[in-house]
């Protein structure tokens, strides 16, 4: 599939996320300048771009942490910016958000980190059911033996895995990964990439992966979108995008491979 700039609006009716003409600025700084993107059911889309191009802003808008200035953001059939209170919470329960720095709760051990969203959202669950859910997701990320450890005792890669496990415990339909491999060594990065693919297979999630790691994008994404200067320069398969002659995209790829 060859796509031109951000005109990658595939005429499919299985989009779980649909973004049209999204604008976002902070003061005088225009971060997103009218972007369009669809995420289809079961696919992984990687958003590639340099630091400060608004990649994280994009996914924060998808969960209502930031409000768009203009444009439509439709997630699972609902306009995110029009939702409030319980409606927004109900939507958020269907979206897993893996933070760049894991954002594990320092004061809680791994078990309590994982239990916390369940206990707060599903008061009727029994201890046995919660324990089972915790063990299941920890097993899925391969860290069952860390259940009683504090986040401060975990390595960067382990924190990322626990952060992903904490989102998986709510059985989300959509996963949003914010720089999943940043700050990790190459071997741990490969493990995280495998985990992202495993999550897609096992939990049938659709994902947006924010990254500037080309290997991560290549290995995990069905499509990649290049975000530069607040707009998608190109959206398509990794091979399509990599083959493009666009100078700014080429310089982005070249720089990444050199470094």
């Amino acid at each position: 599939m060859q796509s031109d700039n951000h005109n990658d609006i595939i005429d499919r009716d299985d989009a779980v996320i649909s973004i049209r003409g999204l604008y976002k600025s902070f003061g005088a700084l225009d971060v997103l300048k009218g972007i369009d993107l669809d995420l289809h059911k079961g696919e992984n889309v990687a958003v590639l771009g340099r630091s400060g191009t608004g990649k994280s802003v994009l996914i924060k808008i998808l969960v209502g942490l930031l409000m768009p200035d203009a444009g439509k953001v439709n997630v699972l059939g609902q306009e995110v910016d029009k939702l409030k209170g319980k409606e927004l919470d109900a939507l958020r329960l269907k979206i897993g958000f893996s933070f760049q720095n894991s954002a594990l709760y320092d004061s809680m051990d791994v078990r309590r980190n994982l239990e916390f969203p369940l206990r707060m959202n599903f008061k009727s669950l029994t201890k046995k059911e919660i324990d089972k859910a915790v063990e299941e997701v920890l097993d899925a990320v391969g860290l069952l033996d860390k259940i009683n450890q504090l986040p401060s005792d975990l390595s960067g890669g382990q924190k990322k895995r626990i952060g992903i496990a904490r989102t998986l415990i709510l059985k989300p339909e959509i996963m949003l990964y914010d720089e999943p491999t940043s700050g990790l060594d190459p071997i741990t990065s490969v493990e995280i990439n495998d985990l992202i693919n495993d999550v897609q297979r096992r939990y049938h999630t659709s994902s947006i992966i924010i990254t500037h790691d080309l290997t991560c994008a290549k290995v995990t994404a069905n499509r990649v979108a290049i975000l530069l200067d607040g707009a998608f320069l190109k959206v398509g398969t990794f091979a399509d995008v990599f083959a493009t002659k666009e100078e700014r995209i080429q310089s982005f790829f070249n720089y990444n491979f050199i470094t």
């Binding site: 958020r92 720095n101 709760y105 707060m120």
Partner: peptide, 22 residues
Amino acid sequence: GSMRVTEQIDAMEVSAINPFKF
């Protein structure tokens, strides 16, 4: 403050937990 800058408060919010209340 530390929870804010390390995105722990945002993490609560996206898990449908009201961080202000908690």
